[in-house]
Design a protein around this nucleic acid. Sequence first.
DNA 1: GGGGTTGGTTTCGAAACGAAACCTACTCGG
DNA 2: CCGAGTAGGTTTCGTTTCGAAACCAACCCC
Lengths: 150, 150
Amino acid sequence: MKWREVDRQQCSVARALSVVGDRWTMLVVREAFLGTRRFEDFLEHVGASRNIVADRLRKLVDADVLARRPYQDAPPRYEYKLTAKGRELYPVLASLLAWGDRWMWEDENDRPLHLVHDRCGQRMSPQLACPCCGEAIDPREVTAVGERAS
Amino acid sequence: MKWREVDRQQCSVARALSVVGDRWTMLVVREAFLGTRRFEDFLEHVGASRNIVADRLRKLVDADVLARRPYQDAPPRYEYKLTAKGRELYPVLASLLAWGDRWMWEDENDRPLHLVHDRCGQRMSPQLACPCCGEAIDPREVTAVGERAS
DNA sequence: GGGGTTGGTTTCGAAACGAAACCTACTCGG
DNA sequence: CCGAGTAGGTTTCGTTTCGAAACCAACCCC
């Protein structure tokens, strides 16, 4: 199977990755969450080359994760903003951030970015909870049902 | 910047993706969470070709996400199991699953896999919560602090 | 000793990436 | 009016990675 065909797997993880699983794509989404709107700013902060950033922005717009719209007419200029679908990627990004914070730094004081929860004022590392009972989720207490045909 | 150098970014998301951001890698991790242990089973379920699966397993072992150990001596055979570091990728996988469930199916009844929280017995789609106050997280109520030098 | 099983490595053509150059459609300053 | 600058890309072309198939190795059992 080729990567381009991964969206045909009967698995939501595979299908999600068919949209956000290309190299650099989640870094483009990260920038969008940090407020980046313009092509040149994505280019500067994501770190990929021009043609790759252009390709990823186009694919994210095609997938309705970002919306592209002109913010001036003459000369024509565009901005990219998260859609509702894109904003719902927040848990994916926050989970990657938490895992990277936990495992990818020699000295945790070097970490450049922290999240603060405005409601309680605390620095936080988001955790998963069950929406119905509110309890923190332990993977061992979760059962995957009906997983596959084989 | 080349993708191989993405772990040099001063960003936990980028560094996390330097480990699990290659094509197919999160699908290998998905399989590990579903209980797959052996090479031939990863090969069958992940969908990538042999050399790619071998490469991703090797890189995940190098990154201490999976551990490779023999389960018999003659002939030599190996199994791959999640480490503590690997098990902590659960939120990333669960978030991708939830997003894929939400956005990647025409008919949600076609979704092949559901998660059931054993403690409360309900089918669930995990959500993020603040570990200190227990509230569900709204991205608009989270501030990113000290984001970057520029 | 022939065939089967498991866990890979090698090979080689195709696709994706990456850096630099180029293009377009304007602006502004002189 | 001319030249330089800016924003947002596309094109080109050499390098890297992917992907499918073939091959290899170390055993087992019959």
